[in-house]
Simulated scan of single mutants.
Amino acid sequence: MLLQSFQPKGKVETCTRFYGLRCKPHVGWEDYTIKRTDLERQWMAEGFISKGHGQDVEKVAGNYFNELVNRSLIQPVRFDDRGSVTHCRVHDMMLDLILLKSAEESFLTVVDYPQEFAGLEYKVRRLSIRLDGASYGQKILQASSDVSQVRSVMFFGSPDRYNSPPLSWFKFLRVLFVDLPSSAAVDLTGLCKLYQLRYLRTSVNWQFQLPTQIRVLRHLQTLDVPRYDESLPSDIVHLPCLMHLNTSQRLPDGIGNIKSLRYFYLFDIAQNTLDNIKGLGELTNLRYLYLSSPALGDDDKQKRMDALCSSLGRLCNLEELVVNFQGCMDCNTRSAGCLSALCAREFFHYSERPTRFCRIAIQGPPAVYPL
């Protein structure tokens, strides 16, 4: 029955096999939990998803995911307050089957020890590096290793034990995922030579340094660097295909240029300039926006809030707005999360025109106000 449900039926099953790249080593199957949006964005980056009958590419990816759930190829494990799946996993038997079929068809390669890669006799397309068992200072790949055709690479384990390969070796890389501890060192100096890169995500704990200029990554769709402590590259606002941005850092001026942006987490009202607050209104493709701010000073508050309300009114495709403020226009207290429903209504009262939100979430004490 399991084999029958996994018979090749096109791109949907291809998407299922991509799950095999993400399963961490030495973890029970019940802990192989992956965020839905991560999977869908990786599918898009690899080119598994294409527009169908005029449908939006993200909608198509969502349909693929729902089909996999309906056929029990993946299992939902977490849901949002609307009942939509946010995280998933696969059963251990299904994972074994995914890895078996993927190995038979050279779809992906899992490397637990450096010598395993040296013995491969086929071109690797997708590479999951999980070298907890490597010796200190050991090289993962030799200079003679052919990784020029690798489209996705994911790093797991403790790379302080081994030398990671230069990114410049992966000439046609589309997906780069790094899930490493804070002490790990992976050399990102070759990042700007990955001209086909579409997806870059790092783990929360990993410390790293992005290049100062990345506008050569013209195909980049997802930049997910949640705990990046350095200044973002100054030319990030000139990435023409950027759709998903996750960062806690202040953005360079000119965010209104990122017309392709759909998902934006998070935008700090106090940290960003007034020009950038006004520039939010240019991001008319936004579907999701997370706003955050400490308590604003009285001299600055009205100006920034007026600009914010004006910008929100121009986001005609925005479906979800999450707000986490300390202090607000209608609040006297400065305690965390005191943005009230009245303040939320002010966003729309001062907007240039009504915005069609599915919902607005007010965080502070958590609450959701349907609009």
Score class of each variant (00 low, 15 high):
A367Q: 12
S293W: 00
E346G: 03
F325V: 09
A336H: 13
L318E: 04
S310C: 11
F348R: 05
H349L: 10
L321E: 09
A295Y: 08
C328Q: 10
Y290C: 11
L312S: 12
N272I: 00
C316N: 14
D300N: 12
A270G: 00
N272W: 00
Q271T: 01
C358N: 12
R287F: 13
G337V: 02
G279N: 01
Q363A: 04
N332V: 05
I362F: 04
L339Y: 15
Y350R: 15
N332S: 10
N276D: 15
Q326V: 10
N285R: 12
L283H: 07
S340Y: 03
C338V: 01
Y288C: 04
I277A: 00
D300G: 03
L274N: 02
P294C: 08
L289Y: 07
T355P: 01
D298K: 13
E352Q: 12
S340A: 07
L318M: 02
T273H: 00
K278R: 14
D300A: 02
M305N: 09
L283I: 08
K278D: 05
Q326L: 02
G337Y: 02
N332A: 07
D298Y: 11
Q363T: 04
Y290N: 10
A341V: 13
R356M: 09
V322G: 00
G281R: 02
E320F: 14
A341M: 06
D306W: 02
R304L: 04
N324R: 14
A344V: 11
F325H: 09
C343T: 10
P366V: 08
C309D: 10
